[in-house]
Write a protein that binds this DNA or RNA. Structure first.
Length: 255
DNA sequence: ATGGCCATCGCGGATGGA
């Protein structure tokens, strides 16, 4: 079973790229973030023609998440039960009866100390409190998406320049580590990876060409799934497309 | 470098992203 996550920065713009990617990377489940599209606009038919089911949790202009899958997802849950939020950031479903997939678009946070930063920290706490009980119900769980947090300096092209900046603060990393402490492991770091592996590059200043990026898109798995993880990689190919998303897909092989 | 780029809304330029 292969799963992937990809922040596509507008499904309206990037639908052809998503379909193209799926045709050469026929994963079982693809979590999408930043649809920037309301549910009534979601292209279920286009995915169906490609042989994929889809469940979405959209929002006009901002945010929006979806799960694209070969088999239908069951027990679909939108956002974080118990955490009141007017933004569409999380969608969860079960596949192959007992694999629970949580696709998430974590808040950006804009700037440490800002209202958006405080919202990010509150959201992270809400996610953690919910996942603690969710992991009891679903021991085989995958949490993947755009986390908007780096683990450490290895995830940042310019650690000195980014020190204490958004995505790299101690507060964000504390919350990320607290999530891991619930019993999750970073699939990417289970394997040797190319040096300077990033999942996002700024559109400005030839960020991708110069590999000035950050690894902020992650796939975390529970201990029960860890023995099944045979590979995890970042696919930089779509970042070379015309009009690319600023993020690249991350893929995990659970076979 | 007080920035660069991109998507949205909507038709100019602000807002958000990261």
């Amino acid at each position: 079973m292969k799963l992937a996550t990809w922040n596509i920065n507008s499904l309206t713009v990037r639908l052809p790229q998503v379909l193209d990617w799926l045709s050469t990377n026929p994963v079982d489940v693809l979590a999408l973030q930043e649809l920037k599209m309301s549910d009534d606009k979601f292209p279920h038919a286009a995915f169906a023609e490609a042989g994929y089911q889809s469940v979405c949790f959209g929002q006009k202009t901002y945010n929006g998440v979806a799960l694209i899958s070969k088999t239908p997802g069951t027990s679909v849950v939108r956002n974080i039960p118990g955490f009141s939020d007017d933004m569409a950031r999380v969608i969860s479903a079960s596949f192959d009866s007992d694999i629970r997939v949580v696709g998430a678009y974590f808040p950006n946070g804009q700037e440490p100390g800002s209202d958006k930063f405080e919202y990010k920290l509150a959201w992270l706490k809400g996610l953690r409190d919910w996942l603690r009980t969710e992991l009891v119900t679903y021991p085989k769980l995958v949490l993947m998406g755009d986390f908007n947090i780096t683990f450490d300096d290895a995830d940042v092209w310019d650690p000195e320049g980014m020190r204490d900046q958004i995505h790299c603060t101690d507060e964000e990393r504390y919350e990320l580590n607290a999530l891991m402490a619930l019993g999750l492991v970073d699939a990417h770091r289970l394997f040797a990876q190319p040096a300077k592996s990033y999942s996002w590059w700024d559109y400005r200043d030839f960020g991708f060409r110069r590999n000035r990026g950050m690894r902020i898109d992650h796939i975390l798995v529970t201990g029960a799934l860890k023995p099944l993880v045979s590979a995890c990689w970042i696919d930089k190919t779509p970042r070379k497309n015309e009009r690319p998303s600023d993020h690249a897909p991350v893929v995990v092989d659970l076979s």
